[in-house]
Amino acid sequence: MNLAQLKIGQKAKIVSLDFDNKETRRHLLDMGLTRGTKVEIKKIAPMGDPVDLKLRDYELCIGKSDLNKIQVEVIK
């Protein structure tokens, strides 16, 4: 399961970041998307992309092309 597959309001835990681009991966780690971090899909842009996530008490928007490289585990 990756983050791009989740719907509004769903919560998940980060499992891994599968990026070829080292810089983007590093940036996402810096922004707090480390293994085990809880995220919630908060808002989705009107055209479906990018998606706004809530994590670590703030909101971060990420484009779909990156979201589908973030593997997660859904929290029920």
Partner: peptide, 9 residues
């Protein structure tokens, strides 16, 4: 090629 959009809201 199209690149990332990562931004705080």
């Amino acid at each position: 090629t199209s690149n990332s959009f990562i931004s705080e809201l």
